[in-house]
């Protein structure tokens, strides 16, 4: 689904990624670990071009999204992203946070379809279904958002602002916000690093249930236990390259690279 070919990223003169090659298949759960400064967050942020790569290509569903002439917004709609600091929209209620992107995108599609009908070919449009109105789109999105909130048990928080939620609740809302777009893959950038220890569990549980449903996920994390349990591949990064890529059992029990062994001995 995602083919990363010789991905490079420079910030000024510092080379953070020195040629990354990875293939992520549908249903993969890839966990990226490594010491701080190893480039793992940058790698993740390059996958949806939050950081523009300075070299190489990222083939997502057959399109090279590292190409600057591609309309990245369309492709990002199929790639969810979850941030370390949640980044819920502070000026919107919980349910508006979830509805914003779906409503916006569907309204845009509706307008495009309307334009096409008005200015398109002269064929009669009597047989076509009527286009949804903005209100209908909003109502539909609201239903879906409520269903997502029900899933994480926060239905009663639909109309409060994010500032009243706990960290764990915020992160779970952020995860379902990315789910609302029905993405093909979700990128997690240290989703539990900013949480109180007692809230880590609820977020990891939600991620596990996504994994069971077959969601493709790329996760940067320091939760080794979670990596071992959920991942089907672990990437170890250091100094801007992938040093080791292996299934979790093999990775944690018999790491091949000396640097991996050194890192694991410190964190396990």
């Amino acid at each position: 689904m995602i083919d990363v070919i010789d991905l490079k990223k420079k910030f000024g003169s510092t080379e953070v990624l020195k040629g990354i090659n990875v293939t992520i298949e549908k249903g993969d759960i890839v966990v990226v670990i490594g010491p701080s400064g190893s480039g793992k967050s940058t790698f993740l942020r390059c996958l949806n071009c939050m950081e523009d790569p300075t070299g190489g290509s990222i083939i997502f569903n057959g399109v090279d999204i590292a190409d600057m002439s591609v309309d990245i917004n369309i492709h990002r709609r199929h790639m969810g992203m979850v941030f370390q600091h949640f980044n819920l929209f502070n000026n919107k209620t919980v349910i508006e946070n979830i509805m914003l992107a779906p409503v916006h995108v569907r309204c845009q599609e509706m307008k495009a379809a309307r334009r096409k009908r008005i200015f398109g070919s002269g064929k009669s449009s009597s047989g076509e279904a009527p286009l949804p109105t903005r209100a209908q789109i909003r109502a539909g999105a609201r239903e879906e958002a409520l269903a997502l909130l029900r899933r994480i048990g926060l239905e009663d928080k639909a109309d409060v602002y994010p500032s009243t939620l706990s960290g764990g609740q915020k992160q779970r809302v952020a995860i379902v916000r990315s789910l609302a777009m029905n993405p093909d893959v979700i990128l997690f950038d240290e989703p539990t690093s900013a949480l109180d220890p007692e809230m880590v569990g609820e977020v990891l549980d939600l991620m596990k249930s996504l994994a069971k449903e077959g969601m493709t996920m790329v996760i940067v994390t320091h939760e080794m236990g979670f990596a071992r349990e959920v991942a089907n591949r672990v990437l170890f990064m250091d100094g801007g390259t992938i040093l080791e890529s292996a299934p979790p059992e093999e990775f944690f029990t018999s790491p091949k690279h000396a640097r991996t062994r050194e890192f694991l001995s410190k964190v396990l």
Partner: peptide, 21 residues
């Protein structure tokens, strides 16, 4: 800046993210 990033990450354009968020 995370607010703008989150808007861009769900596929909203720069101008929509600015206006809405």
């Amino acid at each position: 800046p995370g607010q703008l990033e989150a808007g861009r990450a769900v596929g909203l354009s720069f101008s929509t993210s600015m206006l809405e968020i």
